[in-house]
Write a protein that binds this DNA or RNA. Sequence first.
DNA 1: GTGGTCTAGACCACT
DNA 2: GTGGTCTAGACCACT
Lengths: 135, 135, 135, 135
Amino acid sequence: MFIRIENASGLPITRQVIDQITSHIAGATLRPGDRLPSVRQLARQLAVNQNTILRVYERLTEQGLLERIHGSGTFVATGAARKTRSPVNLMKQDIERLADKAVQLGVRKADLQNRISQAYTRAKQKHTAAKKRGA
Amino acid sequence: MFIRIENASGLPITRQVIDQITSHIAGATLRPGDRLPSVRQLARQLAVNQNTILRVYERLTEQGLLERIHGSGTFVATGAARKTRSPVNLMKQDIERLADKAVQLGVRKADLQNRISQAYTRAKQKHTAAKKRGA
Amino acid sequence: MFIRIENASGLPITRQVIDQITSHIAGATLRPGDRLPSVRQLARQLAVNQNTILRVYERLTEQGLLERIHGSGTFVATGAARKTRSPVNLMKQDIERLADKAVQLGVRKADLQNRISQAYTRAKQKHTAAKKRGA
Amino acid sequence: MFIRIENASGLPITRQVIDQITSHIAGATLRPGDRLPSVRQLARQLAVNQNTILRVYERLTEQGLLERIHGSGTFVATGAARKTRSPVNLMKQDIERLADKAVQLGVRKADLQNRISQAYTRAKQKHTAAKKRGA
DNA sequence: GTGGTCTAGACCACT
DNA sequence: GTGGTCTAGACCACT
């Protein structure tokens, strides 16, 4: 499970991690029954405090996306994907914000499309590579 | 000057306004010497507290983008645009984040491109309409 | 860390506290890595509002003199002393203003020197006593 | 009447001007009956708004140091000097603050005395030169 | 009217 | 507990 924290984003860490785990579930990178890293592990991996991750897991559990089994670990809940919005809906506002910003900045549509195309390809490669390492 | 605050974005209000004013300057909607709405005006317009806007102007002044003249008003500083990153650079991380998320969610490139194209067109229309009203 | 707010000085509280913390850093009473009192602590100690101290720490952080670590505290930044003007330079304008005023008021040089000598001795004593209490 | 505004001082303009006019009166550079520059003149000379100077004259009039004669001008009031604190008292706090700062900064007494001596001499020269020009 | 400081107090994020 | 955002509102300084 690849999660990246970007300090420059302005978003609270918890929010960033919650969004990314949600994306993993909606995109089926994480499937029901999959075990998540322990609080301790993920905290170490992201170099944040354990309480921060604890809070992330708590909130996702409240939303019915995760299930915490005492003494055993944290797992993706049955039917979790159905509880997230659809992939496209999860991106809707990001897309709108990006388009607004592009227009504001006077970036032309073709340029924007190009940049996104390239970024998509790079992201795809990273994703594939990560999967391989994980497998 | 059109600024929109989105509560769901997760970003603090100050950050949202700072980013949007920065975009206006980088995109030359706001040019050196232009007068910004007064602290009170903008606060009223966005329905936020005066102190919030005051902090926005304060930070943008520190960055050299604005100039505050006591008793007179707040203006875009000379050479402000040079102090912002280029339009494309200002979008770089947003684009990357969006692409990562799309891949994560299993949204196909063509779908993503379509959505963005539509959003861009809508944004452009809003922008043009807003300009007209302003003129 | 001894800081005193003088209401009669005409200077805003934030400015007074900023100047004094700067002096502590330039004079090496505060050294890199030293932890400052928490926002709440210092606010209580000086009987001012927390936001006032928060703003002080914020500005000193921008100047590179302090470092704020979320959830952990506020510390003197590495190389902070190098970022302040030298002790003598920090006093230059005060000295000039004082001398101008003395001449303006017709106070003779010897009188001025005497008064300063006495004040210096008193300040030194307070300083030493304060240090002892601190230790 | 020589008045200097220092933006870096942190003191409000009104305060700076009030203090300096008070010093002139306490030091007898300005004597009862002397006419002050008109609001307009002084405002132009100091490059500030007329209202700022107006407020200065108002406050000094309230304190009994000035007298405004409609259609004729603003004058030093009879017995004005008696209404100010004594020269030494007017400097007391400045001296104390300076000494505190010097100790804080680790500046030695001899150094401080030297600097003040030099500044005093320079101030005296300026003062004498100014008087000559005025006469 | 325009910017600026300060308080009191609520609520959030990170350790 | 530590820093951080935001609101509401008083009062000040400069044009």
